[in-house]
Amino acid sequence: MHSTRAGPAEDTVPGLPAGPVVLAWLTQFLVGTDLFVVAPLLPHIAASFAVSAADTGLLVTAFSIAYVVASPFAGWVSDRWDRATVLVVALVLFSAANVGTALAPGFGVLLVARVVAGIAAAATGPTVYALVSTRARPRARAQVLAVVGSGLLTALWVGAPAGSLLGRYVGWQAAFVILAAGTFLLAFPHAFVWRARPVPAAASPSGASQRAGRPGRGVAVSAVAVTTLWAFSVYSLYTFLAVALHSDGRATAVTWLLVVYGIGAVVGGQVGGRFADRADAVRVTRSALALTAVLEAVVALVFPVTWALACALGLFALAAYAFFPAQQRHLVDTFPERATAMLSWNNSALFVGLSLAGAAGGQIVRALDYPALLYLGAAVAVPACLVARGRPARTGR
Rank of each mutant, 00 (worst) to 15 (best):
E337C: 00
E337W: 01
E337V: 14
R338M: 07
A339L: 09
A339W: 07
L343H: 09
N347D: 13
N347Y: 01
N347T: 14
S348F: 08
A349H: 11
L350E: 06
L350H: 09
L350F: 12
L350M: 14
F351P: 04
V352Y: 08
V352G: 11
V352P: 08
G353A: 11
G353H: 11
G353V: 10
L354I: 15
L354M: 15
L354T: 15
L354F: 15
S355I: 03
S355A: 15
L356D: 11
L356W: 07
L356Y: 12
A357H: 07
A357P: 04
A357S: 13
A357G: 11
G358E: 14
G358K: 14
A359G: 10
A359W: 15
A360Q: 14
A360T: 15
A360S: 14
G361Q: 03
G361S: 05
G362R: 00
Q363A: 13
I364R: 05
I364N: 01
I364M: 08
I364D: 07
I364S: 06
V365K: 07
V365N: 08
R366Y: 14
A367C: 01
A367D: 01
A367S: 08
L368Q: 08
L368C: 04
D369F: 05
Y370E: 08
Y370D: 05
Y370Q: 03
Y370L: 05
P371M: 07
L373E: 04
L374S: 00
Y375T: 01
L376W: 11
L376Q: 07
A378G: 11
A378V: 08
A379E: 03
A379N: 13
A379D: 06
V380G: 02
A381W: 05
A381P: 09
V382Y: 10
P383V: 08
P383Q: 10
A384L: 09
C385D: 11
C385T: 12
C385E: 10
L386D: 04
L386A: 13
L386K: 12
V387G: 01
A388Y: 03
A388I: 02
A388P: 08
G390D: 13
G390N: 04
G390R: 15
R391A: 05
P392H: 12
A393T: 12
